[in-house]
Amino acid sequence: MLEEILTFSAEHLDSCAHVYVETFKQEPWNECWSFETARVRLWETLNTPGFVGFVLHHHEPLGFILGYCEQFYDGKHFFVKDFCVQTDKQHQGIGTKLLNHLTIVLTPMNVSQIFLLTLRDGQAEAFYSKNGYCRSPKIIVMSQQLGSRTDSWTF
C-alpha cells in the first residue's frame, strides 16, 4: 500500500487521536491530552459546519490537517483547527504534502484565505513560513483565564 491522502472521517478518529496525543505531548507544546479529550476535540471539529480535513496514510495515519470554512466579508476563509504529523515522521515532507493538498481542494471552493494559530518563533512557525504563510500584521490573540486553574497552558 502506497502513501495516500484520504478525506478525514469518523473512522479516523481513534487512530488520529493517538497521533494527536503523542505529537502534542512533545516539545514545544508539552500539552497533557488524554486519548478521550483528543478524540472529543477531533470529533467536534469533524462535526463543525464547513469542515474539511485530510489524513496522510501509509499503513497508519502519519499526519492530518483539519479545519473549517467560514464566511468573512471578503469571501470564504479556512481556519486550520488542528494539524499534526507523527513526531518521528516530521521533516519528511508529510506536512507540506498535507498543506499542498488542502490548498488544491480549497481553491475551487473559492476560499480566499487560510489562517491558523501556532507558537511564535519556533519550528512550527518556521515550517509555515517556508510554505508561504506569514504573521498577520493586524491580528493578535488575546485570552483570559477562567476559574482557579493555574496549571493550564495560556496563550
Rank of each mutant, 00 (worst) to 15 (best):
E4H: 13
E4N: 14
I5V: 07
F8T: 00
S9M: 06
H12M: 06
L13N: 11
L13S: 12
L13F: 12
L13W: 08
D14P: 05
C16D: 09
A17K: 06
V19W: 06
E22N: 13
T23L: 00
F24K: 03
Q26K: 13
Q26G: 04
E27W: 07
W29I: 06
W29V: 06
W33M: 12
W33I: 15
S34F: 08
S34V: 14
A38M: 04
R39L: 07
R41V: 07
R41K: 12
W43Q: 13
F51C: 11
V52Q: 15
G53H: 05
G53V: 05
G53I: 02
H57D: 04
H57Y: 11
H59I: 11
E60I: 04
P61D: 05
L66W: 00
G67K: 05
Y68V: 04
Q71E: 12
F72C: 12
Y73A: 14
K76E: 06
H77S: 10
F78T: 03
V80G: 01
V80R: 01
D82F: 00
F83C: 04
C84N: 02
V85N: 01
D88N: 14
Q90S: 01
Q92V: 01
T96V: 07
K97F: 02
L98S: 05
L99M: 15
I104D: 14
V105Y: 02
L106N: 01
L106R: 03
L106K: 04
T107D: 11
N110I: 02
G122W: 03
Q123D: 11
A124Q: 04
